[in-house]
């Protein structure tokens, strides 16, 4: 069995730990809705905060890989961003990946 206070050993039954992690992950996925559904009305500022969640979180996820994976990654991300103004997300993604592969092929 997994002793939660001690170092995990690869010989342990890792599946116990995996199930615990699955439960923790699921709790976070229902947590916000469980808390919010207890309130009848939503304050405008809370609503503004929730409206901001997608853009805020995804931006925070995207910045480090864009800045820490070399000039090719940074340029590909900028190209993807600009492409989004002109075309659909899917096409923009293809353009971004193509740019990245080309830049890396030429050693950038």
């Amino acid at each position: 069995m997994v002793d939660f206070l001690n170092t995990v050993d690869f010989g342990d039954n890792l599946w116990v730990l995996i199930i615990v992690l699955a439960i923790v992950t699921y709790m976070t996925r229902i947590g916000g809705d469980l808390v919010l559904s207890r309130f009848k009305s939503i304050h405008p500022r809370v609503d503004a905060a929730l409206e901001a969640v997608p853009a805020a979180v995804i931006t925070a996820i995207v910045i480090p890989p864009a800045l820490t994976n070399g000039p090719s990654a940074f340029i590909a991300m900028m190209v993807t961003m600009l492409a989004c103004y002109k075309t659909s997300p899917i096409i923009s993604m293809v353009i971004g990946m193509g740019t990245l592969a080309a830049l890396r092929y030429f050693g950038l």
């Binding site: 997608p54 853009a55 995804i58 931006t59 996820i61 995207v62 890989p65 864009a66 994976n69 990654a73 590909a76 991300m77 993807t80 961003m81 989004c84 103004y85 997300p89 899917i90 923009s92 993604m93 971004g96 990946m97 990245l100 592969a101 890396r104 092929y105």
Partner: peptide, 21 residues
Amino acid sequence: QALGVDMLLPIYFMTMVMAFR
């Protein structure tokens, strides 16, 4: 890295950031 696998998700997420603009 040569295939760009490491940047596939970041590039996808970039298009999603823009989708909320």
